[in-house]
Design a protein around this nucleic acid. Sequence first.
DNA 1: GCTTGACTCTCCCCTTACGTCATACCCTAT
DNA 2: ATAGGGTATGACGTAAGGGGAGAGTCAAGC
Lengths: 255, 255
Amino acid sequence: MDKYSVKKLSRLAGVSVRTLHLYDRMGLLEPSVRTEARYRLYGEKELLRLQQILFYRELDFPLKDILAILEDPAFDLEQALEDHRKALLAKKERIDTLVGTIDKTLVTLKNKSMLQVEDLYDGIPNEKMEAYRAEAMAKWGKDTVLSAEETLRGFSKDEMKVLQRELTRINDRLAELMGTDPKSAPVQECIARRFAIILKLSGGKIEMEKLEYFRKLGELYVQDNRYTPVNGMPSMELAQFMKEAMDHYIAQQSA
Amino acid sequence: MDKYSVKKLSRLAGVSVRTLHLYDRMGLLEPSVRTEARYRLYGEKELLRLQQILFYRELDFPLKDILAILEDPAFDLEQALEDHRKALLAKKERIDTLVGTIDKTLVTLKNKSMLQVEDLYDGIPNEKMEAYRAEAMAKWGKDTVLSAEETLRGFSKDEMKVLQRELTRINDRLAELMGTDPKSAPVQECIARRFAIILKLSGGKIEMEKLEYFRKLGELYVQDNRYTPVNGMPSMELAQFMKEAMDHYIAQQSA
DNA sequence: GCTTGACTCTCCCCTTACGTCATACCCTAT
DNA sequence: ATAGGGTATGACGTAAGGGGAGAGTCAAGC
């Protein structure tokens, strides 16, 4: 009649002593004997039962169910196993979906990865960019520049390209319309769309410092020959035209 | 500026109010405003953030990681997603293993489902069986019978059949060998194999009461014409021959 | 002005299957 | 007798909330 102490049994079965305590307390595996000092002693029968417990535990059965299986001989083990199997398959399917979603997200992330600071100044020579950032910070405050950059960084590369292209198209159109009435409907439409984009770019609310920053950033692009109006009009005149149109737009809106 | 109360936001996003409380307390999603009465009010920005949270939650990210992702813009999201993907695949593989084990168990269970008391007496008329059980209990004690039955029940139907067939084959062989020297090698081999099976049937150690029980159970089978030696030899003579052979075997073993 | 019903707040305990820590006993060998 | 290791018990922590108590708040209808 060899009896196992908690530690011996725990080593034998590869579980912790604390686990045996737990199984005892919940009636899943009670020691065959308690010594005078309340030490737990387990026999062969308990070792066998523990093996069964661990088998079902390996299958991810909750301990409560294991107790029911072992305790109630009338328990429908077959049904339980089939239920469990179904649950596991459902879990597996869910994981498949999750992995699919992650894959899609990863693809999206790789194609249109979030903008880094360098991307914001993409196409502008590095030394010019650094100088401009320093100048902008001195002019409008470090916070303004950082906040504006952060907002811009919130867009994906693709979105950014779309927005920039849209802005370019509007500017082109405005350049075409230059010389006509700045208050006319076509011009005002362009201005409205331009404001909408800028509103988006600046993160919900238009702050004048940020606007200045964006304008200056655009100017840098122009200086770098990244933007040239279709008809080669100098940007100063275009800016003047736009200013008049915008003034009217703002007056109309606040009315 | 529309603000959402906890309930409104919870309905909008399909989470519980309690969850919003939790997310607030752990800094995952804080309301934009608290009223004088400490009511939580959420704005559009919070709604968007909640959407992001739920996206990652759907992917089974722990909330702590979600907090890190949303809070730290330098967080390597791509790496995190790939790690997570790997973890999910590992989980999936584990589930595959589990389902495989369950399938095997189910097959085993269906083919060789555990023996019930009736199965032990399979083929013996019911009334005879009941009478025999009562008699056996009176003769060798209730505990002996129950313990023997329990041991037998530990075998699957298939195992049981195999063991019974093996025993029958051995008995047949012994019947063939009857009249030869009980101490000869062929007979002793049969006896050894017979002991091995009985040892297995009796659960590791041979107790005389149990042996008696098994012998009597076998007799019942014979009486029920379930076992007839190939040459139609009466069982009494066979038993005598076996006894001699066994006596020699035991003497040899203990020497 | 008052009540009523719907909301909301915070605090606390409950869940699973343990792990960890603290404190107090126990046992055996030297 | 004491040192070391073994043991028992209780309390607390985990992740992501669920459930409920007790108290406060808000808007509508009378």
